[in-house]
């Protein structure tokens, strides 16, 4: 059970938007985490690898900043076991790159560019994820 948090969601969402706009303004890049993450690894086709590592380090550092300012750790409640986590990671990683983006690249940046491809991608991964959650929580068991 988690509470609906409309204000925090809108503020956090706006921060994602500002970060995405800043990345376009500074580096001319889409703030798509899967695209950024996979290009930390070879083959290196451009010279932006250090910048991608810096961005990902920023993502990892964020909860530390939050912990310092808020005096508490942000919750990360995981009920999945190791086998599910590894399977989920492989699928999410493969699918994100195969489909040219994930929730950030397609969901925030692509939709903002009114990209039809991104709209198709967002609808597809939303529907699949909703079906998987339904099967996992209500058919197989909680």
């Amino acid at each position: 059970m988690t509470e609906f948090t409309p204000l925090a969601s809108l503020i956090g969402g706006a921060m994602l938007g500002i970060a995405s706009v800043l990345l376009m303004a500074s580096h001319g890049r889409i703030a798509g985490v899967s695209g950024i993450a996979v290009r930390m690894f070879p083959p290196y086709l451009d010279k932006d690898t250090p910048g991608r590592v810096a961005f990902v380090l920023g993502l990892v550092a964020a909860p530390l900043l939050y912990a310092i300012l808020a005096g508490a750790w942000a919750p990360v409640n995981v009920t999945s076991n190791a086998f599910v986590l590894i399977t989920a990671g492989l699928l999410a990683g493969f699918g994100a790159v195969w489909g040219s983006g994930c929730t950030s690249g397609h969901g925030i940046c692509g939709l903002s560019l009114l990209s039809l491809r991104s709209a198709v991608a967002v609808v597809t991964f939303m529907v699949t994820a909703i079906v998987i959650v339904y099967v996992g929580r209500h058919l197989v068991g909680g």
Partner: peptide, 20 residues
């Protein structure tokens, strides 16, 4: 653009994690 997000969505729905 359909197969990739379908696979991604399955992984996302399994654990609740996406890359960011």
């Amino acid at each position: 653009i359909i197969v990739g997000p379908a696979i991604f969505g399955a992984g996302w729905g399994l654990a609740g994690f996406c890359p960011g």
